[in-house]
Design a protein around this nucleic acid. Sequence first.
DNA 1: ACCATCGTTAACCTAGCGTTAACTCAACTA
DNA 2: TAGTTGAGTTAACGCTAGGTTAACGATGGT
Lengths: 236, 236
Amino acid sequence: MEKQRVLLAEDDFDFGSILKQYLEIHNFDVSWAQDGKEALTLFNAETLAERPFDICVFDVMMPKMDGFALAEAIVSKSPELPFIFLTAKKMKDDRIKGLKLGADDYIVKPFEADILVLRLQNILKRSQRGSAIIRNTIDNYAIGKYTFYPQNHQLRINDTVQKLTDKEAQLISYFFEHKNQLVNRDDLLNGVWGSDDFFSGRSMDVFISRLRKYFKEDPQISIESTRGVGLTFITP
Amino acid sequence: MEKQRVLLAEDDFDFGSILKQYLEIHNFDVSWAQDGKEALTLFNAETLAERPFDICVFDVMMPKMDGFALAEAIVSKSPELPFIFLTAKKMKDDRIKGLKLGADDYIVKPFEADILVLRLQNILKRSQRGSAIIRNTIDNYAIGKYTFYPQNHQLRINDTVQKLTDKEAQLISYFFEHKNQLVNRDDLLNGVWGSDDFFSGRSMDVFISRLRKYFKEDPQISIESTRGVGLTFITP
DNA sequence: ACCATCGTTAACCTAGCGTTAACTCAACTA
DNA sequence: TAGTTGAGTTAACGCTAGGTTAACGATGGT
C-alpha cells in the first residue's frame, strides 16, 4: 500500500517530533511544520507539485497563524481534504468552532499517540470509501424538521426554538458532525469533554438521555447505543 | 468560492501590513490604503471598474481624512456597502458617532486579528442572506413606543423623555444596532468598553440591569442572556 | 469647598447548569 | 438460569454565571 501523506502543524518541538516519529513508524509520510504559515507554505508547495496530502493534523494554538485560520485557508482550497485538530483542553467553545469548520475530529491533549494513529486511519478509511466530503463552513445543521445553530445554541424543531446548554450544544454538534457513524464512547468523551478530565462518570449518559428527548418526536432520528462500543446518531 | 474584496484604510504601517497579511491568509482580497484620501481614490477606481468592494474597514484616526469623513463619503455613494471602524480606545463618544453613521461594527484596538476576520465573515454572511441593509445616516432608532436619539442620549418612551448616561447610550446603541442577534459578552465588552480594559468585571451587568428597567413596561422587548455565551436584544 | 452625577465595585441572592447518585432494565457470560 | 455488567433515566446536589441593589470614589460644575 502507498504511504499516506500527513501534514502535521504543531509548534511544540518535543511533542511534534514524537508524533512525527510515531506516525512514521505506522507507515505515514509526514511533513511537519512548526507554525501555521509554514504549514500553509508546505501545503501550497505540495499541492502545486501534484502530490497532495491525504490528511492534515493541526494544533490549534500556534504562533503566527492559529490552527483555525490555517484550516480555513486550506479548506477554501481543498474542500475535501480531511483534517483534525489537536488542542489543549480548557479552550472553551473551541470545540464547536472546530467542528463548525468541518473538522473530522478533535483530540484533546494530552492523549496517547496511538489514539491519533487510529483516528487518522479511520478517517482515511472512511474518506476512501467514497463519501467525498463537500465541506462548507457550517453555520447550521439541518435534518428533517430539526435545525441546529451552533453560534447561539438554538435547536429549531419545526417552528419552536429550543435553547440548548453549552454541553448539550457541544454534544449535538459532535453528533451532527458524525451522523450515521458509530462513535466509540472514549472518542465522544474526548471530543466533547476532553478525556483527561477523568471525571468519575456517567455525565455523558445523562446528556445523551437529554438529547434523546429532543428527538423523541421523530421516529426516523435517534441515538442508538451499541453495548460495549459506542453510539450512533441515526438519521435518514 | 469567490474571494471577498476588502477595502482597508489604516495609516499605521506595521499594523496595516499585519492586518492585510492576515486577511489574505483568510482568503480575502485586500486593497490597503494608508490614508482616507487614498482609500477614497481606490474606492472610486474600483467602483468605476465594476469590481466593487464587499466590505470596508476604516481606522478612525487617519491623516488627511479621518475614518468618519471617509465613511460618509462612501456611504453616500454605496449606501448598502457594509463597513466597520477600528479605533484606539479612549476616543470618547466615537463609538456612538460610528454607529450613527451606520457602521456594522466597531472594534477597539488592540485586538486579536482573528477577531476582525470573524466579524467580517459574520457581517458578510448576514448581508448575503438578503436583508440588504438600507442604511441612512441614523439619527434615531425606533422600536414600538421606544425611540432613542443618539445625539442627545435621549430615550423617548411614549411621550416621556428619559435622559441616558454616556455608557447607557453606548450600550443601547450597540443593542439597537445588533437587535435580535446573540452578541457574545466579549464582543459587547469590546464594542462598548474596549476589551483590554480588563477591568475587574461586572460593570456591564449593572448597565444591562439598568437598561432592562427602561424596557420593563413592554413585554415584547427584552434583553435575554444565554448562559456562558452572551446576550440578545429581543424586539418584535 | 460642597454637591451632583456617573461609572465602577462590592456584596448578596437566584436560577441554571453539569455532575453525581441511585435505581431500573437489558444484554451478555458461564 | 443466575449473576454480572453496561446503559437509560430520574431526581437531587453544589457550583458559578449572572441579576440586582447599594455604596464608593472620581470628576466636574457652581
